[in-house]
């Protein structure tokens, strides 16, 4: 069996990679992908922890997190399309009309 610490380390690494992706990339699609990575890091922790506690609850929560992540991407892509119609690109550097 894979030691639990490995699973937690991997999920921590995934989360940090996702966060770095959000901060570095300027393309909305890449940002959405990175956010997926962060959500899935949480899923991995949940499943590993469910195995640790011998409790099915964590696995169940992971399913719900997947559903929510999918819904979030659906809305996110819709807004990305809207952005593309308005700006002709999905680059976040272009959105700087609002400031004060």
């Amino acid at each position: 069996m894979i030691p639990l610490a490995h699973a937690f380390l991997l999920s921590g690494a995934l989360f940090v990679i996702g966060l770095a992706g959000v901060m570095i990339r300027r393309n909305v699609l890449m940002i959405l992908l990175s956010i997926e990575l962060m959500m899935n890091a949480a899923n991995l922790t949940l499943i590993a922890a469910a195995a640790k506690h011998a409790d099915l609850h964590g696995q169940m929560v992971a399913f719900f997190v997947m559903v929510i992540a999918a819904a979030e991407v659906a809305v996110g892509l819709a807004i990305a399309v809207l952005l593309f119609r308005n700006e002709g690109s999905v680059d976040t550097d272009l959105v700087k009309n609002l400031k004060g």
């Binding site: 959500m39 922790t45 949940l46 929560v61 979030e72």
Partner: peptide, 14 residues
């Protein structure tokens, strides 16, 4: 923020 929230949730569960 949601991703941070759910990751924190998973750590608390762990």
């Amino acid at each position: 923020a949601s991703a941070c929230f759910v990751y924190g949730l998973s750590l608390l569960y762990a």
